[in-house]
């Protein structure tokens, strides 16, 4: 069973719709016990960083998420991915979960439209079980104005948008983050969710 963290994130229902469609057992939860007995955890997210961290803190789950991330797969999606990093300066400085070293800042280019919205290609720089059985080219659906800045060693794939945008990241162990929305990225996005379930077994 995958625990999907419920802290009021906007894409919670689309993530659950996708898991449901794939027949992947999951529970939407605010409960530490459910997270403890889950095989894997998904942290969804849409919106602004500090507001989302506040809502997550209000659930009292931050400790449980950090602990479980040391022993079972965790997937952060969109803002949920950004929250895996140390801090963001969206609407003022705010600490994240600190599970992957790096920071989140506004997409710096002045030449492209912000938000970065639409289908962009993944440039894959590392093998990952999350990308198993997925044929190239891999286009995924992005909607965001802020991006992660981190060491290349944490990047599985990036997208080019007048600069390098970390698209799929990992701590090298159990923690994964997708800047794009696998739940809105067609068949290839669904395959990533299937792969995530496989990793949980």
């Amino acid at each position: 069973m995958i625990a999907v963290i419920d802290y009021g994130a906007g894409n919670l229902f689309s993530v659950c719709n996708a898991l449901q469609y794939l027949n992947i057992p999951h529970e939407v939860t605010k409960d530490t016990d459910v997270i403890n007995r889950a095989e894997a955890v998904i942290l969804p997210g849409v919106g602004a960083f500090p507001a989302a961290m506040d809502s997550l803190r209000a659930t009292g789950l931050i400790g449980a998420i950090r602990e479980n991330a040391q022993k079972k797969p965790l997937l952060g999606i969109c803002l949920g991915m950004q929250m895996l990093f140390d801090r963001s300066d969206e609407n003022g400085l705010c600490n994240g979960l600190g599970l992957i070293p790096g920071e989140v800042h506004r997409i710096p280019s002045k030449r492209v439209i912000i938000p970065h919205m639409g289908w962009n290609e993944l440039v894959i720089t590392q093998d990952s079980p999350l990308l198993r059985s997925i044929e190239k080219p891999v286009y995924t659906y992005f909607v965001h104005s802020y991006q992660a800045f981190c060491n290349d060693r944490y990047i599985i794939a990036y997208s080019d948008y007048d600069g390098k945008i970390p698209a799929l990241v990992t701590d090298g162990k159990f923690v994964f983050g997708a800047q794009y929305h696998p739940e809105k990225s067609g068949e290839k996005g669904l395959q990533m969710l299937r792969n995530f379930e496989e990793m949980a077994k």
Partner: peptide, 8 residues
């Protein structure tokens, strides 16, 4: 539709 279609 949102239960069966996984594009925006």
């Amino acid at each position: 539709t949102a239960k069966q279609v996984f594009v925006p």
